[in-house]
């Protein structure tokens, strides 16, 4: 479980996040939305311990994030960055296998986990390929498989942070990947995902946090956050919000 209390983050002297409060419970998927520069990635950097908080607290399973030793923390908290800069010719299964480095689960278990994680991100067919020969979207899915392997099979107490996991994916894989994140949540993992696509967020998240200029403008269940006037105010885009004809969740269409 991840709890954030009155979090503030500065970059240099400049405050970029103010008074952020949120809780991601086991089994819950929290979507973070907001226009460019709203502070989404800064929030993720703070939650993963990369940026120090200038105020407030981040609690991972009740313990302040800075209080965790690196290795036990890596077994509870996995982070998918927005983009990766790996420039060496590892095989795809080797990259995914790096997710097992915090564990001492042995070769046999690791091999099973790697296979399952490869399948979950739909990259099983790429297992023996060199990472460098993959397309941007394939690389993104390989890294998703890597962070899933790090928490596999997923249980209560673990937290998965995803920074725009669908930014380079085709429509089918946008759904495959978020479905995989959803399944992780069903096994008890608390998932926080940064998204740009409001409809994907409406479909796969339980709760949403809407950020604007470093502040939280709306936080709550999907239906409450995705109101036409809220979306218009934050994104500056006139929208219609209707119920999805089959699933009932909000469907957002630009006017």
């Amino acid at each position: 479980m991840l709890q954030v209390i009155d979090l503030g983050v500065n970059r240099g002297e400049c405050p970029v996040l103010r008074d952020i409060a949120l809780t991601v419970r086991p089994g819950e998927v929290l979507g973070v939305l907001g226009p460019n520069g709203a502070g989404k990635s800064t929030l993720l950097a703070a939650l993963s311990g990369e940026l120090p908080a200038s105020g407030g607290q981040i609690l991972l399973n009740g313990t302040p994030l800075q209080g965790w030793e690196a290795l036990p923390r890596a077994r509870q908290l996995a982070v998918l960055p927005q983009s990766s800069t790996l420039g060496f010719a590892f095989r795809v299964d080797e990259v995914v296998g790096m997710g097992r480095l915090p564990h001492a689960s042995g070769r046999v278990v690791d091999a099973q986990v790697i296979e399952a994680a490869l399948a979950a991100a739909d990259v099983g067919h790429l297992a023996g390929r060199s990472y460098l020969t993959l397309s941007g979207g394939e690389r993104q899915r390989v890294h998703l498989a890597r962070v899933m392997a790090q928490l596999w099979p997923g249980q209560a107490g673990q937290v998965l942070l995803l920074d725009e996991p669908t930014s380079m994916l085709d429509p089918l894989h946008q759904h495959t990947i978020l479905q995989a994140a959803r399944q992780f949540a069903e096994r008890g993992v608390a998932v926080l995902v940064i998204l740009h696509d409001l409809n994907l967020a409406a479909r796969y998240c339980d709760t949403l946090l809407l950020l604007d200029r470093g502040e939280s403008c709306a936080y709550g269940p999907v239906v409450e956050v995705l109101q036409a006037e809220t979306v218009s105010r934050v994104f500056g885009l006139e929208v219609l919000v209707q119920a999805h004809p089959e699933r009932g969740h909000p469907l957002i269409v630009a006017r």
């Binding site: 993963s48 311990g49 990369e50 690196a70 290795l71 036990p72 923390r73 890596a74 077994r75 908290l77 996995a78 982070v79 960055p81 990766s84 800069t85 790996l86 420039g87 060496f88 590892f90 990259v95 790096m98 997710g99 480095l101 915090p102 790090q150």
Partner: peptide, 20 residues
Amino acid sequence: ATALNALLLGESEARHLGFE
């Protein structure tokens, strides 16, 4: 050796995998 492997992913990624 394994820490160096993780470092090739990136410094943040290596930290997230539990390396100092």
